[in-house]
Simulated assay, not measured.
Amino acid sequence: MDLTVVAYIVYLLISVVLTVWVARTLSRNGRIFLADVLKGDEKLAEAVNHLLVVGFYLVNFGFVALYLRQDGTIDTVRHLVEGLSVKTGVVLLVLGVMHLGNVFVLGRIRRRGTPEREQRPPVPPQAWAPPAARM
């Protein structure tokens, strides 16, 4: 078997395993954050979490597929390892950027909803009081 084919297979295995692991980790640990962002609506948080995971898979698997092609030939094991490290590093960077993008957007949504929570008085006003006279 040609070393280029071996590189393709190893690259796909590493990329798929990393993408699935990151997506599951983010999904599992992001539920609480999403519930807070969405003001305690657990059902909506679960739906948004699922949609984010599907989008995460689509974008990352699409990138992995587009980045599969190897420009040069792989003649030695050294070239194989070097090529795999570059490709895996780029996939990890894309996964990290996707994660940071999600956290940034959700943080903005959360911050936008925070002033509404803080501006409401804890109890409704009981009566109106006229301003005090100046002395």
Rank of each mutant, 00 (worst) to 15 (best):
M1Q: 07
D2A: 03
V6I: 06
Y8P: 04
V10H: 01
L12T: 02
L12G: 03
L12H: 01
L13Y: 11
T19Y: 03
W21G: 04
A23N: 02
A23E: 02
S27R: 02
R28F: 13
R28G: 04
L34E: 02
L34A: 02
L38W: 07
G40D: 13
G40A: 10
G40S: 11
G40M: 10
D41Y: 09
D41E: 15
E42C: 00
E46P: 08
A47N: 13
A47T: 12
V48F: 06
L51T: 11
L52Y: 04
V54F: 02
V54I: 06
F56T: 02
F56N: 04
Y57P: 06
L58H: 01
L58C: 09
V59W: 08
N60G: 06
N60M: 07
F61C: 08
F63Q: 01
F63A: 01
V64P: 03
L66Q: 11
L68E: 11
L68R: 11
G72F: 07
T73M: 07
T73R: 10
D75C: 00
T76H: 02
T76A: 02
T76K: 01
T76D: 02
T76L: 04
R78G: 10
H79G: 13
L80G: 05
V81P: 07
E82M: 11
G83I: 00
G83M: 00
S85I: 01
S85C: 09
K87I: 06
V90I: 15
L92N: 04
V94A: 05
L95K: 05
L95C: 09
G96H: 10
M98Q: 15
H99A: 14
L100Q: 12
G101Y: 06
N102W: 10
F104C: 12
V105D: 03
V105P: 09
V105A: 08
G107T: 14
G107V: 07
R108E: 11
I109Q: 12
R112P: 01
G113H: 14
G113L: 13
P115H: 12
P115L: 12
E116F: 14
E118A: 11
Q119S: 13
R120M: 14
Q126W: 08
Q126T: 13
W128Y: 15
W128M: 14
W128I: 13
P131E: 03
M135K: 12
M135Q: 12
